[in-house]
């Protein structure tokens, strides 16, 4: 008997075809569209040098712009947190005529050009617009104030909250609430102790994404904000103005700070999603 028979090595065959090609394509695309621009921005920022970088971003006008942006985004996010949760609740829990239409309308802020949103909000809230004629005499100016900025931000980012909470609410086992009812829980106790803890991680993640989106909003805001330096000038606009002035370094520095915010928020959002999966079954 000879032991020299040669068996070819066993290679596991993939069941799904096209792994190499599809992964390669997506990686290439990701590199071209995301990684290279971000790297270029970071390199541009690094070129400036830490001293100048710090001087640019700590200039009073830049600091004011960051403050306004963050404050308005915070206001918008608080509003979206409440309203988006309510909207998701209504869309999941109740049946009413026009529900599907309402559900579809929820995506309008995604699809609508932000400039269009900004224009129509300005038209509505300006001193002689439909809402403005009521609000302005009452001493609540919206246009050319931080409230206008916050409103424009809220409009464009509310779907992030609705669309993250909605599926989690839909997947909730109705038996959980029934169990709470049989144990004597009143509606508020059911919501606060059973339903809300279940949707909390998704809700927080949605709010974080909405906040990140608000920080970067530009198109909808420039029309309604009035863009007065130190008053209603947002960071993204300031970066744009610097670019217009051919101050590439100034623009890059401000953009880098915005990028930093966005990355931190993205990290928070992902951590929240990870936290959300902690109770999930390992296998289903």
């Amino acid at each position: 008997m000879s032991t020299a028979t040669f068996d070819p090595p066993i290679r596991a065959k993939r069941v799904l075809p096209g792994f190499t090609l599809s992964l390669g394509t997506t990686l290439l695309y990701l590199t071209l569209i995301v990684l290279i621009p971000v790297a270029a921005l970071i390199l541009k920022g690094a070129e400036i040098g830490p001293d100048r970088f710090w001087r640019i971003i700590s200039s009073p006008r830049a600091v004011a712009a960051f403050q306004i942006t963050l404050t308005a985004a915070a206001i918008a996010t608080v509003f979206n947190a409440v309203y988006g949760l309510l909207m998701a609740w209504v869309l999941v829990r109740y049946d009413f005529p026009g529900k599907r239409l309402l559900d579809a309308l929820m995506d309008v802020p995604f699809a609508l050009p932000t400039a269009v949103a900004g224009l129509s909000l300005t038209a509505l809230f300006s001193a002689n617009g439909w809402f403005g004629t009521v609000l302005h005499p009452a001493g609540i100016p919206v246009v050319y104030t931080i409230w206008g900025i916050a409103m424009a931000m809220a409009f464009t980012s509310v779907p992030f909250v609705v669309r993250t909470v909605q599926p989690v609410l839909e997947d909730m086992d109705p038996a959980l609430e029934q169990a709470a009812v049989t144990l004597g829980a009143r509606p508020w106790a059911i919501f606060s102790r059973v339903v809300f803890p279940a949707i909390l991680p998704a809700w927080l993640a949605g709010c974080t994404t909405a906040f990140a989106r608000s920080l970067g909003e530009f198109g909808a805001i420039v029309f309604i904000a009035g863009n007065l330096p130190f008053k209603t000038e947002i960071a993204a606009l300031l970066a744009y103005i610097r670019l217009e002035e051919f101050d590439y370094n100034g623009a890059a520095a401000i953009a880098l700070v915005l990028l930093g915010f966005a990355l931190i928020l993205l990290l928070v959002s992902n951590l929240l999603q990870f936290w959300a999966s902690r109770y999930h079954e390992v296998s289903r």
Partner: peptide, 19 residues
């Protein structure tokens, strides 16, 4: 109402509060 009947109900898939 169900809340006022004080019944113990056990569900097929347990319906334990996961959190």
């Amino acid at each position: 109402a169900a809340q006022d009947r004080r019944i113990g109900f056990v569900f097929q898939h347990y319906a334990l509060f996961p959190h």
